[in-house]
């Protein structure tokens, strides 16, 4: 059974978003997503300063066998990316909500309004 922390918001494409305040949002992939992807071995993230658009590919997560698109859960600008994942892609499997965060985005306040809460995300993945 996947972990779904209560305090995060979720996209239907299996990214989580944490509201850090002041229009900053931390983004990662869910526990369910890492289970589906299998062992991750390579991560390609957008550079700081680049704009990303909700629902559009902004990076790539690769497992041994397959490449999967990273879909931006919000429209905004990349403020930071987790450079350590280049050396430690396995963190995405070990700690998807913690040290394997992917990006910090700058976006408008209340940008997460369209996203799912934990209960709704739980129902989504149960139905899949």
């Amino acid at each position: 059974m996947s972990t779904i922390p209560e305090h995060l918001r979720y996209s239907t494409t299996h990214e989580w978003v944490e509201d850090l305040g002041s229009g900053r949002y931390r983004v990662g992939i869910t526990d369910h997503a890492q289970e589906l992807l299998g062992d991750l071995v390579y991560v390609e993230l957008p550079e700081p300063g680049r704009g990303v658009q909700s629902g559009v590919t902004c990076g790539v997560l690769e497992s041994v066998k397959a490449a999967s698109d990273l879909i931006a859960p919000l429209t905004g600008v990349v403020a930071e990316r987790n450079e350590a994942l280049g050396e430690h892609p396995e963190w995405l499997n070990e700690d998807p909500y913690g040290r394997a965060w992917l990006l910090v985005l700058e976006a408008v306040p209340a940008a997460t309004a369209e996203l799912l809460d934990a209960a709704a995300y739980g129902r989504l993945i149960e139905g899949q």
Partner: peptide, 11 residues
Amino acid sequence: PLHYGSQLAEH
């Protein structure tokens, strides 16, 4: 079976 938890560990 595709894997039993981790393809990398099995490899």
